[in-house]
């Protein structure tokens, strides 16, 4: 048996793909991929625009990428709570109402598409690498560490605040 089993672990942590959810085991529909693509284009465009408005020169702290990633992480914390993705009973719920309410498309467009396209791990790693190559080890380590702290703090804080705002569930 190679197929993942939820067991006592409470299932996988992947918010984009949960193959325990029967609806997600089927091949992705064209409209889901289209929603991901459209959202990705919107998110990447926004990231590109912010980079143009806020360029960072060689050796400088890449503030644009830093804030893009921090903001995207805060927004995914809000989104996942709002669409109920963070609840442990989501498997049953997905069968009941997920497909009817169009929630999978909301997640595909806004979560996988917009926020996935907006935030970037590759530019983060390249910035980190460049700063090291430029001899700016202090800035490189500060950037690498602060991004992780800001991203995790943002997703945690935003999810906690949103849970409280929608009625203390979770």
């Amino acid at each position: 048996m190679t197929r993942p089993v939820p067991g006592g672990d409470g299932g996988p942590v992947d918010p984009d793909v949960d193959l325990h959810v029967p609806a997600q085991r089927t091949e992705p529909q064209g409209r889901v991929l289209a929603a991901v693509a459209a959202g990705g284009a919107a998110g990447a465009s926004a990231r590109y625009g912010i980079g143009l408005l806020w360029p960072s020169g060689p050796g400088a702290f890449p503030w644009a990428t830093f804030w893009v990633n921090a903001a995207g992480c805060a927004l995914i914390g809000v989104l996942m709570v709002l669409i109920g993705e963070d609840r442990e009973d989501r498997e049953d719920r997905e069968d009941d109402e997920g497909s009817r309410t169009g929630r999978p498309l909301v997640r595909a467009f806004a979560g996988v598409g917009v926020l996935g396209g907006f935030t970037t791990f590759s530019a983060y790693a390249l910035d980190f690498s460049r700063l090291l190559d430029e001899g700016e080890a202090g800035t490189a380590l500060a950037y690498a560490g602060l991004t992780v702290v800001a991203a995790l703090g943002a997703v945690w804080g935003a999810a906690a605040l949103t849970r409280r705002a929608v009625g203390g569930r979770g």
Partner: peptide, 10 residues
């Protein structure tokens, strides 16, 4: 940029 993600990672 779109292939990678920080939001899902965090």
């Amino acid at each position: 940029g779109a292939l990678s993600t920080y939001s899902t990672f965090s």
